[in-house]
Simulated assay, not measured.
Amino acid sequence: MYVPDRPRFRPTWLASGRSTTPSWLTDERWLPAGNRELYARASGGLYAALGRLDPPSGPALLPAYVPRAVVRAFRSREYEIAYYPVTADLTLPAAAVAERIEALEPAAVVFVDYFGFRDEALPALAERARAVGATVVEDCARGAFSRDPDGEPLGSTGDLAIYSLHKTLPVPNGGLVVARDIDLPAPDGSVPERRDVLTSGVDGALSRLGIPPAALVGCSGPERAAATVGGGPDRSDERFRIRRPGRATIRGLHRCDPARIQSRRLDAYRDLRRLVGRVDGVDLLTPTAHEGACPFGLAISGPGREWRDALYRKLRRAGVPIKVFQWPPLSPAAASDGAQRLRNCACVVPTHRAFPPAARRRLTRALERVPGD
């Protein structure tokens, strides 16, 4: 058995012939109102949008648990970087974040809607940020088609909303930016996608044969070095190329039905949460899903890093999808206790498809048998 860990583009879709973007990209039922632009990658779109803002008069204030590409986009636009803490349960410590906003008076503040959920403290914190003149960037990378608890499309709180469509939809590329008050630059050229299409074809063949890639190439667990402070090369001086996705991505976007995807992800998430919630010793990090949510996955954590890595290896070898987001800090200032625990102990079970009975059994068996620290 092998369930891929992300939605899969099907090479046969290339024959559809559609070359324009789908209508849901301009539908305010699914995306916030504002100026929209589709880029190859969300990081390139963020870099493009930041170039339309005034030169920074203060730092960019980011959560301590944040993807490196976000940090690099700001650094490449000459922002100094500061951080606010994140708790180990993926929530915002509102008082501490507000204190950082008041003390630093940042030019921009980034809030991450972790795995498709908006924190309840975000609206009030966004207003505090605007009160000191900051641009509010809402990172909805894994939140396409999700709604916040107020019923608004995820991303409606920010002045800029950033979506990584290729992380939640069956497309090779796709970074969407929605801006309230600025005109976004058009992409320059498109990215090649032939290799992505070939990879997707191979992944589909393995899925049909029930052969997990880990059975062919092995699985040693998440890369440990990446979770250390400054782990891996720092490419903060790189210049992002502002390009559009290729035709394979456009064909894939046309295959996406927002209502169907949202409903299926919500059902899969609720089912997973009930299933995993019955296992002792596992902490559920992402909340109970409200109506309208479109969760990327169920975030969980356990006793420690050895537990998380052992679970990762077991599930990968069993062909059950699991993701680890270590997002290593580029500065000691980003190594807060809560963020470090998330890097070391958390993992996410994706919800892009319902788990077949065999996958459910393997998931619960792995959770019950992985020893604690």
Rank of each mutant, 00 (worst) to 15 (best):
residue 329 P to N: 10
residue 21 T to G: 02
residue 197 V to K: 00
residue 64 A to M: 01
residue 114 Y to D: 11
residue 219 C to V: 02
residue 197 V to M: 03
residue 138 E to I: 06
residue 146 S to Q: 08
residue 349 V to E: 08
residue 112 V to A: 11
residue 362 R to I: 03
residue 230 G to A: 07
residue 315 L to P: 06
residue 116 G to K: 02
residue 6 R to I: 13
residue 310 A to F: 05
residue 353 R to A: 15
residue 124 A to Y: 12
residue 268 A to K: 01
residue 349 V to R: 09
residue 364 T to K: 12
residue 14 L to V: 08
residue 22 P to W: 12
residue 357 P to E: 12
residue 367 L to C: 08
residue 255 R to L: 04
residue 339 A to I: 06
residue 338 G to N: 02
residue 259 A to Q: 15
residue 41 R to F: 14
residue 319 G to Y: 06
residue 336 S to P: 02
residue 293 A to E: 11
residue 126 A to Q: 11
residue 339 A to F: 01
residue 82 A to E: 07
residue 318 A to W: 06
residue 138 E to P: 00
residue 155 G to Y: 03
residue 150 D to V: 13
residue 372 G to H: 14
residue 262 Q to V: 09
residue 44 G to S: 14
residue 204 G to I: 05
residue 67 P to M: 02
residue 372 G to P: 06
residue 96 A to M: 12
residue 260 R to T: 15
residue 330 L to M: 12
residue 184 L to C: 01
residue 220 S to P: 00
residue 180 R to M: 10
residue 328 P to W: 08
residue 102 E to D: 15
residue 236 S to C: 00
residue 256 C to I: 15
residue 96 A to G: 05
residue 247 R to G: 00
residue 324 V to H: 13
residue 41 R to S: 15
residue 40 A to Y: 02
residue 173 N to K: 15
residue 175 G to S: 10
residue 58 G to M: 02
residue 217 V to K: 09
residue 149 P to K: 04
residue 145 F to Q: 06
residue 5 D to E: 15
residue 242 I to W: 07
residue 85 P to R: 09
residue 41 R to Q: 13
residue 11 P to S: 05
residue 305 R to A: 12
residue 183 D to N: 13
residue 313 R to V: 10
residue 277 G to Y: 04
residue 219 C to L: 03
residue 80 E to S: 09
residue 162 I to R: 11
residue 46 L to H: 12
residue 15 A to C: 05
residue 206 L to M: 11
residue 185 P to G: 01
residue 166 H to W: 12
residue 34 G to C: 08
residue 69 A to Y: 09
residue 357 P to K: 08
residue 287 P to G: 08
residue 93 P to C: 06
residue 177 V to P: 05
residue 109 V to P: 05
residue 299 A to N: 07
residue 93 P to N: 08
residue 298 L to V: 09
residue 92 L to Y: 12
residue 182 I to F: 11
residue 348 V to R: 06
residue 210 G to T: 05
residue 275 L to Q: 09
residue 22 P to I: 07
residue 357 P to T: 09
residue 158 G to V: 11
residue 81 I to F: 09
residue 51 G to L: 03
residue 194 R to P: 00
residue 266 L to V: 14
residue 113 D to C: 13
residue 221 G to A: 01
residue 153 P to C: 10
residue 101 I to N: 09
residue 88 A to P: 04
residue 62 L to G: 04
residue 129 A to K: 06
residue 52 R to G: 05
residue 209 L to A: 14
residue 176 L to H: 07
residue 199 T to W: 15
residue 45 G to A: 03
residue 36 R to V: 10
